[in-house]
Design a protein around this nucleic acid. Sequence first.
RNA 1: GGAGUGGGCCAGGCGGUCGCUGCUGGGAUGGUCGAAGAUCAUCCCAGUGGAGGAAAGUCCGGGCUCCGCAGGACACGGUGGUGGAUAACGUCCACCAUCCGCGAGGAUCGGGAAAGUGCCACAGAAAACACACCGCCGAUGGAGGAACCGUGUUUCCUCACAGGUAAGGGUGAAAUGGUGCGGUAAGAGCGCACCGCGUUGCUGGUGACAGCGAUGGCAGGGUAAACCCCACCGGGAGCAAGACCGAGCAGGAGGGAGGAACUGUCCGUUCCGCCUGACCUCCGGGUAGGUCGCGUCGAGGUGGCGAGCAAUCGUCACCCCAGAGAAAUGACCGCUCACGACAUAACCCGGCUUAUCGGCCCACUCCCCUU
RNA 2: GGCCCCAUCGUCUAGCCCGGCCCAGGACAUUGGAUUUUCAGUCCAAGAACAGGGGUUCAAAUCCCCUUGGGGUCA
Length: 132
Amino acid sequence: MSDDFSFPKARHLRHAADFDRVYSRKCRAGDQHLLIFADLSPVETTRIGLSVSKKHGNAVKRVRIKRLLREAYRLRQHDIGEGLDLILIPRVASGGGLRDYQSSLVRLTHKLRKRLSSPQTDSSVTTAEQQR
RNA sequence: GGAGUGGGCCAGGCGGUCGCUGCUGGGAUGGUCGAAGAUCAUCCCAGUGGAGGAAAGUCCGGGCUCCGCAGGACACGGUGGUGGAUAACGUCCACCAUCCGCGAGGAUCGGGAAAGUGCCACAGAAAACACACCGCCGAUGGAGGAACCGUGUUUCCUCACAGGUAAGGGUGAAAUGGUGCGGUAAGAGCGCACCGCGUUGCUGGUGACAGCGAUGGCAGGGUAAACCCCACCGGGAGCAAGACCGAGCAGGAGGGAGGAACUGUCCGUUCCGCCUGACCUCCGGGUAGGUCGCGUCGAGGUGGCGAGCAAUCGUCACCCCAGAGAAAUGACCGCUCACGACAUAACCCGGCUUAUCGGCCCACUCCCCUU
RNA sequence: GGCCCCAUCGUCUAGCCCGGCCCAGGACAUUGGAUUUUCAGUCCAAGAACAGGGGUUCAAAUCCCCUUGGGGUCA
């Protein structure tokens, strides 16, 4: 499993309802390259969504940032683990490369996972189920 | 060799590893159908395809879809030399006119201002109506005066009264053809020559128009990207169009006194109901969402031949060439070179405009040098 | 993706339709001065803009075209 770096469509966050759920959870973390919203996923896998505003430039520049973010997740997905829904928002003036996005992604998701797991009980999944 | 004009083409290349996506073939797991098997969903393997010359801006035109529509007129909007091309166009081609360039060539929203209306600041006598004003003249007529071998139908002077003129009038973007000669009291196309303009005839051309001739002394400022007139064109909205399926919630019709959970059954308990209707069946509209529209067939591409000056058209052969949907072409490494610009299809085409690192090719013009 | 609208001093705006008196007017703000023992207030004065480029015209903030930057709307 650890040598599988594929990134199929099931790992994309695709529906407006999913985006609204993650945004309304209001659990976010950021550094100079990225801002990440997170929530526990109703499915077993981790899914990511991308939001790149028009302030980043024309379509070529925005699509390039999305590709870098997907590539960063693809290469480091085993350091992140399963069961999260993430929305990645790049900072406007960061100018980050692939390595910047990789390190930011891993560090911020670990922080977010700890924060999502900490309230009340140990088992994060059952907590999420009870809340839902 | 230098300077330049017009047109066309390319848009880094090769290799390796990981990854995304459409299609085809094979396989695995699960669901549905009575089996063989079919079909759907997910995944794996192999093969194969995978952005642009502007994909951009959305400035025009068309296809396509829905809505509207007997016909006509008006309004509104657009186009604007002529002829052709085209599905159509505000596009393209050829030609004409005007302007620019020594030239190859380039530019032009290029109908009408002798249909009408409006506007033309400041300056200027006057801004479109021809005069008036300042001027010039005063030949002719008039008034006054002077001269004389001459007493006159004489000559000269003055006035600016009648009158004649449009040469000139600092301006202005623009002022009633221009230059020259003659002519006159002063002047004036008043006369003449050349140029410009109008009318008209002939010739050439499909036509815009051109050439030649005759004739008229001359019409008459600019602005229509001001209203307008003329000719031609145009129904409206747009794939988030539109078609199909369709949870949930609410609604309607019929049935209806029970229904649901704890539990497989009975008992029991709890909850929701008993005409202000729980629950069941059916119905239409249709939200979230999904499928199609949507890329195997097109105003399609490549090559040949033919028609045409060309745009383009005809014909023959071959080819199938992106199809996503929070949205696919990327990441890393190595080599190489001119060290890589602008910029990512979203229903599809034909154009225009704008952005752009550079490189290559063809045709032509001018200047210089050598043979 | 389609359709539509807007752009004027630091800010809010007038002028645009119908071109000229516009090197663009007003309010608030800023700066300087006067008044006042000082501050506030009041009065006087100054600076400061037609998004950019091209065209039509004698003349453009205004008319036409292109570009840039904002905004709205349609599931």
